[in-house]
Computed example of a mutant assay.
Amino acid sequence: MSGYGDLPEGWQVWTEDADGGDILVYRPDVFDSHEYPSPCLPTIQVAQRPPTQQKRRAGSNPDGWWVSLTLEPEVRVRDADARFDSRTAAVAGAVDLAERFAAGDVDYRGAYQIPREDYLDELDDRTGREA
């Protein structure tokens, strides 16, 4: 069922549900709650609701699919949010976002008001991004 093909190094499909959405995670072997707090697992979500809407409302008629990137539950990289007309297009958008993230082309530092410097430094090292 997976439409994710070859994800860039470090990314993996955590859950996949064609009706409810998918979750991709980055380096769960590194960001595993031992050295970093457990919420510090970069996550891409593919869902039939905007990232600002917590749950799908009963009887709602979703208008497309959304892709979002979070570094922690309350830290969303808003510049990465995107809307797509179909699940297939959203999956392709999620793969593109994962590729840009892995290449260091996503400004995740800008999502923080109070940064976790050790965590962000580790992400910089893993993605080759310069702070």
Results as ranks from 00 to 15, higher is better:
residue 1 M to C: 09
residue 8 P to D: 02
residue 8 P to E: 06
residue 8 P to N: 02
residue 9 E to S: 14
residue 10 G to K: 00
residue 13 V to L: 12
residue 13 V to D: 09
residue 15 T to M: 11
residue 19 D to T: 12
residue 20 G to L: 08
residue 21 G to L: 02
residue 26 Y to D: 01
residue 29 D to T: 02
residue 29 D to G: 15
residue 32 D to G: 05
residue 33 S to L: 01
residue 34 H to T: 13
residue 35 E to W: 15
residue 35 E to F: 09
residue 38 S to Q: 11
residue 40 C to Q: 13
residue 42 P to K: 06
residue 43 T to W: 08
residue 44 I to F: 01
residue 46 V to S: 04
residue 46 V to L: 02
residue 48 Q to V: 07
residue 48 Q to K: 13
residue 51 P to W: 03
residue 51 P to R: 05
residue 52 T to Q: 14
residue 53 Q to K: 12
residue 53 Q to A: 13
residue 59 G to E: 02
residue 60 S to V: 04
residue 61 N to V: 15
residue 62 P to I: 13
residue 68 S to C: 13
residue 70 T to S: 15
residue 71 L to F: 11
residue 73 P to C: 08
residue 74 E to M: 12
residue 78 R to W: 08
residue 78 R to T: 10
residue 79 D to V: 00
residue 82 A to G: 10
residue 89 A to K: 09
residue 93 G to F: 02
residue 93 G to H: 01
residue 93 G to K: 11
residue 96 D to I: 00
residue 98 A to W: 03
residue 102 A to V: 01
residue 103 A to E: 05
residue 105 D to P: 00
residue 107 D to Q: 04
residue 107 D to C: 01
residue 114 I to W: 08
residue 114 I to V: 10
residue 116 R to D: 15
residue 117 E to T: 14
residue 117 E to F: 10
residue 119 Y to V: 11
residue 120 L to A: 07
residue 121 D to N: 06
residue 128 G to T: 08
residue 128 G to V: 03
residue 129 R to N: 00
residue 131 A to V: 03
